[in-house]
Simulated scan of single mutants.
Amino acid sequence: MKVMDFDRYKEINDQRLNYREMEDATVVSNYRNVGCGDGYRIYLKIGEDRIVSDASYTTTGCGFGIVALAMATEIAKGKSVDELKQITPEDVERLFEFPERRKNYPESAVAALQQAIRDFESGSGVPKERRITASKAKELLQTNGTLKGEDLSSIILEKEDLHGVDFSGANLNNAFLTNCNFEGANFEGARLRGAFLNSANLKGASLKGADLRWAKLAGAKIDGADFTDAIYDIGTRVDQTQIHIFSKMKKEGKDVYMEKDEVGR
Rank of each mutant, 00 (worst) to 15 (best):
A185C: 05
L157I: 10
L157Q: 06
T143A: 13
A175Q: 08
N186G: 05
N198R: 09
G189S: 08
R193F: 12
I132F: 09
K128T: 07
L157Y: 12
N179E: 14
G123S: 10
N144C: 05
N171D: 14
V165F: 10
S135T: 11
E129G: 03
G164W: 05
E160M: 10
R131E: 06
L162W: 08
D119L: 02
T143W: 04
G164Y: 11
L152R: 07
L157R: 07
S154H: 13
A170F: 07
A116R: 02
L141N: 00
N186W: 09
D151T: 01
R193Q: 14
I117T: 00
E139V: 03
T146D: 00
E160P: 04
N198C: 08
G125A: 01
K128M: 08
G184L: 07
I155N: 02
K208M: 08
K138M: 15
F196I: 14
K203L: 04
I156W: 13
G204A: 05
G184T: 03
A205C: 08
G145N: 02
G194M: 09
R193W: 11
L192P: 14
I132S: 03
N181Y: 12
A134N: 05
L147I: 08
G149A: 03
I117P: 00
K203V: 10
N173M: 13
N173G: 13
N174A: 13
